[in-house]
Design a protein around this nucleic acid. Structure first.
Lengths: 228, 228
DNA sequence: AACCGTTTTTGATAGTTGTCAAAAAGCCCG
DNA sequence: CGGGCTTTTTGACAACTATCAAAAACGGTT
């Protein structure tokens, strides 16, 4: 709803927006935590991290000691919208999706698989309530660190902050590329792209989720697929 | 200027935006570089940076001593595609656009204005040739730092790396929001959004550039505008 | 193997937006 | 003030995709 006004020789435009009421946040059903992780399973994380930026031993140990293992089963939620996301996760095994509700529909806007860092980035960095949900697509193993612990690591180990800075660069570029593709490619091109660049997603994720990830309707995706 | 209203049990927020008259752009004839910038003009940068993360004096000085002033005039290029972007810029005054060529068309995918950090992020961080061009929309004043100098600052001043890490977070969130909007809103909603969130762009940038920025054709944008 | 709920496909239709082409408006400069 | 270039608007049409509805396929369970 808008309205144009002229006052004292200058133009103004007035907008009126309805503020929707808050929805009550829902809590986790079950969540298992073990304080000290077994060393053997954390090698995935270290190997992966060293590809971003190799950490000195002291920083590595500090990082490992700050992580908690989280095991969740299929369809559980890691986060629901309106909650504040206080942790950053490393996904060792499994698959997740991030989605939000829009006009009563679930819009999946990202997937995460093995070796991905996962969080509700907006909520985690700003400390404000999340607008998205994070749900398990498969039973998964995650390693979590709280925002406070991470800040502590940043203070004590410059290298860890560097690692994160470098990780951000990779993730930014990834998003930028997705953005450009989403905006200027046809539905068919998007699907072809996905076939080429991330066929694993197609194998592990229901079609409906993939459709909204690509920004097209499920029916359109189905029709495109039948052409291949 | 905003105002909250309660009507029939629901909350509304009212925005009033002044449509500012166009400012006459300043033109510069040629590229000039001065190694040591006058302190008075760098206050913009410092003030802005302190909003991200306040730097200690030593880090501030080191940063300022690494910056070079660059003045470019309208329509000049800061970067052409296939070049490697070796600098990060802070835009003190003026306006730029980033665009790439696709099927013989120029696709503008970002704008930068006062107090924005500017670079071809992909090329700068990876060291690979840029896929985009950066062009001046107005005569502009920029402060530049090379990738090597920045790395040196990171090594000597943990706080500067932190500042950049925090800046990345803001820019990531900004891109994420744009992405979600671009993918799931209609052309009209995108235009309304722009009216609300960045009306200054509409005043300073030709319509054709804005259309491709929003991911719609110039004709569609023109038709939407006529409805207001 | 049969059943039930979920996911995917198919069909018909309508709406939105892009494209091409031309007219109109705006702007700079002499 | 007028000419020439650029930018914006308007019109007609085609293409693509969303939507709604229903059928088919799939997957897990008994």
């Amino acid at each position: 709803m808008t309205c144009n006004v002229n006052y004292a020789g200058e133009s103004f435009v007035i907008y009126c927006i309805r503020l929707r009421p808050l929805i009550i946040p829902i809590t986790f059903t079950s969540l298992s935590l073990s304080l000290l992780p077994a060393n053997n399973t954390m090698e995935y994380l270290l190997t992966h991290i060293n590809r971003y930026y190799p950490l000195p031993a002291a920083a590595q140990n500090a990082l490992l000691n700050s992580l908690e293992k989280t095991v969740l089963s299929k369809n559980e939620f890691l986060l629901k919208d309106r909650q504040i996301c206080r942790h950053l996760y490393f996904l060792e095994k499994g698959a997740l999706r991030g989605f939000y509700n829009s006009d009563g529909k679930e819009i999946t806007h990202w997937f995460a698989f093995e070796n991905d860092f996962v969080t509700s980035f907006y909520s985690f960095t700003t400390g404000l309530p999340a607008v998205e949900n994070i749900q398990l697509l498969e039973g998964s193993i995650l390693w979590s660190i709280s925002k406070e612990q991470l800040a502590e690591l940043f203070n004590n180990h410059h290298e860890i902050e560097r690692l994160v800075r470098i990780a951000y660069e990779k993730y930014y570029i990834r998003l930028e590329e997705r953005f450009v593709n989403a905006q200027f490619k046809t539905a068919k091109e998007l699907y072809e792209n996905m076939l080429l660049q991330s066929p694993h997603i197609l194998e592990r994720v229901p079609l409906g989720y993939i459709a909204s990830y690509l920004g097209i309707s499920q029916e359109t995706l189905s029709r495109i697929r039948s052409q291949f």
